[in-house]
Nucleic acid binder design. Structure first.
Lengths: 192, 192
DNA sequence: GTACCGATGTCACTTGGCGACATCACCGTA
DNA sequence: TACGGTGATGTCGCCAAGTGACATCGGTAC
């Protein structure tokens, strides 16, 4: 039997990714994933909290980077968060468009995965918000700034991933941030 | 056996709510819920998509009201969304603080329920955003305005539910909206 | 009465997820 | 070299979430 498989975790992630693309998320069994990786179902559950987690291993690194950058950046709360996301866009996402698109199409096909992605987003927000507070931000500012920053990132990310887009994620983030500023500060009464 | 139970749906919701409070969400079986309502497990699944849904029946009404109000309101996109949430705060939440607190403490105790709540929030956002676009809003504005509006509501709602608060939800929403405007419009240098 | 229909119950099954225990590889040490 | 320990893995059995197929009952129209 498969005693001591090097990088079991990585191989399970890869197997899961392949199978999700081949058959779809729901049609893939944890046992299937483990089998393709040459491991047992039980081993999968020792390395991942649940079936969904196999697709979200990267979010830890993103969170780390974000928190670090926010802590170092010297700017308004909201600006700091946006800047951190732009930094992350360059360091983590820049060269991975195709991969991200495949991943996103998997997520889009399953409500369960969409829920998990939402949760990862708020976890991210909580961590960033904590980093902001550690820098002396008051709670409200920290919460709203990160929440808005996450929104900006989400929208920019969605555009970036969209099949017809070819702009750089960093630029999209900057654009969306500007748009958000315009929208929330507008005070007039103009529906259109 | 129990043929023709009046308001099966309502009784299942009530049973679920009670049991979740008594034993917790994870410790409650769908079979338990059905039994308390005098029905069968299978019937539960015919009326609710899954175990979690029993706690989220209200979100449909909220969505309806929001969409209607947004469609009628004549103001800037973001303002319209905020106004719609304030209206909803009065029409739906005003007299239900205690109930909402109980519900929220159940949700807080289970990651699964938190995920579902997040999803309901984005579904709400999608509906509101569509209503905005139907009024002539461009896509970006609609998305960002509703996303920001939802954020405002979320934060205000959290404060309202917090055990030491006693302000009215409507007022909290207005306050948080003002804070958000201040934060995103703060002119800082553009870092990185 | 009968024929139909909609709401419910029954049964069987797959899968997610977990606890308990058995193994095996490897490692340091006497 | 033999030994015992440790950590990663496999095996087994279980409960609970969901679901499909089929049976059943109450009422209703004809």
């Amino acid at each position: 039997m498969a005693r001591w498989q090097p990088d079991a975790r990585g191989r399970l992630e890869a197997a899961a990714f392949e199978l999700f693309r081949e058959r779809g998320f729901e049609q893939t069994t944890v046992a299937d994933i483990a089998a393709r990786a040459g491991l047992d179902k039980r081993t999968f559950y020792r390395l991942f909290g649940d079936k969904r987690e196999a697709l979200f291993s990267g979010s830890g690194r993103l969170e780390e980077l974000l928190v670090k950058t926010v802590a170092e950046t010297d700017a308004t709360a909201f600006e700091a968060v946006v800047a951190a996301f732009r930094r992350a866009a360059e360091d983590i996402f820049a060269d991975r468009l195709e991969l991200v698109r495949m991943r996103q199409s998997i997520i889009a096909s399953s409500p369960e995965l969409q829920e998990r992605e939402l949760r990862k987003g708020t976890a991210l927000g909580a961590a960033v918000s904590a980093a902001l507070r550690a820098k002396g931000c008051d709670e409200t500012t920290a919460t709203l700034a990160t929440e808005s920053g996450v929104t900006v990132f989400r929208v920019a990310y969605a555009r970036w991933v969209a099949p017809d887009s070819d702009a750089a994620l960093t630029d999209l983030i900057a654009e969306v941030a500007a748009e958000l500023r315009a929208i929330t500060s507008a005070r007039g009464k103009l529906p259109t």
